[in-house]
Design a protein around this nucleic acid. Sequence first.
DNA 1: CCCGTACCGATACGCTCGCATCGGAAAAAG
DNA 2: CTTTTTCCGATGCGAGCGTATCGGTACGGG
Lengths: 201, 201
Amino acid sequence: MPRQVDQEERRRRIADAVCALTEEGGLEGVTLRDVAVRAAISLGAVQRCFRTKEEMLLFAVEAVGGRITARVRARLTASPAQSAATALGHAAGEVALVRAEHRAEARIWLAFLAQAAVSPPLAGHLRTGYAALQGLFARLIEEAAAGGTGAGLDPEREARTLLALADGLTAQVLVGHLTERAAEEVLDAQLARMWAGPSGP
Amino acid sequence: MPRQVDQEERRRRIADAVCALTEEGGLEGVTLRDVAVRAAISLGAVQRCFRTKEEMLLFAVEAVGGRITARVRARLTASPAQSAATALGHAAGEVALVRAEHRAEARIWLAFLAQAAVSPPLAGHLRTGYAALQGLFARLIEEAAAGGTGAGLDPEREARTLLALADGLTAQVLVGHLTERAAEEVLDAQLARMWAGPSGP
DNA sequence: CCCGTACCGATACGCTCGCATCGGAAAAAG
DNA sequence: CTTTTTCCGATGCGAGCGTATCGGTACGGG
């Protein structure tokens, strides 16, 4: 068998390049040529890994989504001794890509989100990520409710609320309407109110 | 004086064409040629109205933002007899472009939002729209608090919360993660909880 | 040693983009 | 009717895009 190349590692490198370019100039700033330069390989190699540009972008968005949920999970297992309520706070804080060090990921996510609004296959991949996060949130809320904090809450609905709020905050920080500080304050207040009093009729 | 043309009316027609195209294929599906076709004028005429493409897009986003806030205001003045609390409910419902008939505007808004993350001038125009809506929300909340409903709330923070939540819900409905029904339920529950109990430490 | 094969990099192609240019049509003034 | 001024629509241009192709290259098995 002739020479072999680690395709997976190469794909990961390409995905990283896609993210870097998306962060700088949006999704329309991502060209195959620039990706090749950023990944330090040739255009031909990029085309060997992904037959079309769309295929490449789908792989990249999956990578980003996975990275975000992985980070959330890591944050949870890193501080296991606390209550489910504080764990949810940490998780929500990670999902709202508000902090400066995650600004890049936020830009990437928003770019893919907008594209997904007009590209059904992309939307499918995004939904997968959203569903995972919502499920995670719901489980934490349920756990907290079982522990006595915030009993009477509808876990699914609260999870949806938090996820949407985190997304909206991310976007508004990105365009500069909210400061990082204000967004965190909003999120904290929402969590506090959640635990304080059950909602619903 | 030689022949004169109503430039303003033409600009509005062009903005409408931009919106229609954005709705169909995202912002990158908007080309000067297609805009000209949609507006039923020639490419030369488009270039006469706007010196560059960016100038055209800025005008369009301003038009969309204005239309949304105008719709919210209209909704408020249309049902003046009710309390500030229900008025806020209506306003938030309009901002969260959840209903099917506003799906188009939602797509447009999201497209511009993503672009704004990498284009400072565009971000500026968006901020204007956000500030107007947040101010409106804050005023309504304050009014309701003065009337006794939901006293003790921080109007600015609640306004920010509602706006971010509405934005996030819009996006998640758009990618199909939430149904229109679920989004409305989340929004209603949030409003109910707001009036029920003050937040904060 | 060498040969077959999997990979690579360069180049070409067809297309579309934003933008600039220019001859002519149309309308008010004389 | 002629002139003058404003606007319009067609065409051209250079650049950049995604994609296809092909000769060269290097490696592992015989």
